[in-house]
C-alpha cells in the first residue's frame, strides 16, 4: 500500500488510468460472469479500489487474448490455470482461486495485458483484501 501509494510501478500503456473512475472491462469465456465466488470478489474489490464499474464481455479465449493485447479489455477471468500456455502472451496475476482439473487441484489466475505492472500491482493489492 505504501509503495503503491507513490504511484510506482507505472503502466507502459496506462491501463490503470483508463480504468480509474470509468469501467473495468473483464473478458470471460463461459458464463456471463465468473462462477467462482473468489474471482468475483477479487474483481469487485479491484473495481472498488479504482472507483470503476465492472463490465463483463463474453468471448472465445483466443479472441479475448487478442483483445487484451490491444487493450480492448483489461483482464481475463474464469478459471485460468496458472500453468496456462497463454503465459507468454499475457501477464499472469498471483493465484486468485483454484479449480480441479483431471483430479488435480490447480491454482487459477487472472490474465492481464503484458507489462502493465501498475495495474497488476493494483489488482494483487485489491485481491489481498479478499482473502
Amino acid at each position: 500500500m505504501a509503495l503503491a501509494g507513490c504511484d510506482l510501478p507505472r503502466d507502459p500503456e496506462a491501463t490503470t488510468d483508463h480504468v480509474r473512475g470509468k469501467t473495468l472491462i473483464v473478458g470471460i469465456t463461459t458464463d456471463d460472469e465468473p462462477s467462482d465466488p473468489k474471482e468475483r470478489a477479487a474483481i469487485e474489490q479491484l473495481a472498488e479500489r479504482l472507483d470503476a464499474q465492472v463490465e463483463y464481455r463474453r468471448g472465445e479465449l483466443h479472441q479475448l487474448v487478442r483483445t487484451l493485447e490491444d487493450g480492448g479489455i483489461h483482464l481475463i477471468a474464469g478459471h485460468i490455470p496458472e500453468t496456462t500456455p497463454f503465459a507468454t502472451e499475457t501477464g499472469l496475476s498471483a493465484p486468485v482461486s483454484s479449480v480441479v482439473v483431471d483430479g488435480e487441484r490447480v491454482k487459477t489466475v487472472f490474465a492481464v495485458r503484458k507489462g502493465e505492472n501498475g495495474f497488476l500491482t493494483e489488482m494483487e493489492t485489491a485481491m489481498g483484501g479478499t482473502r
Partner: peptide, 20 residues
C-alpha cells in the same frame, strides 16, 4: 517489443512489487 511483467509478493502482510 517484449513488455516485462512483474507482479507483487506478500511480505509481512503487505503487497510489495517484486521489482523493488
Amino acid at each position: 517489443a517484449e513488455h516485462p511483467t512483474i507482479g507483487t509478493v506478500e511480505l509481512f502482510g503487505e503487497r510489495v512489487w517484486l521489482g523493488w
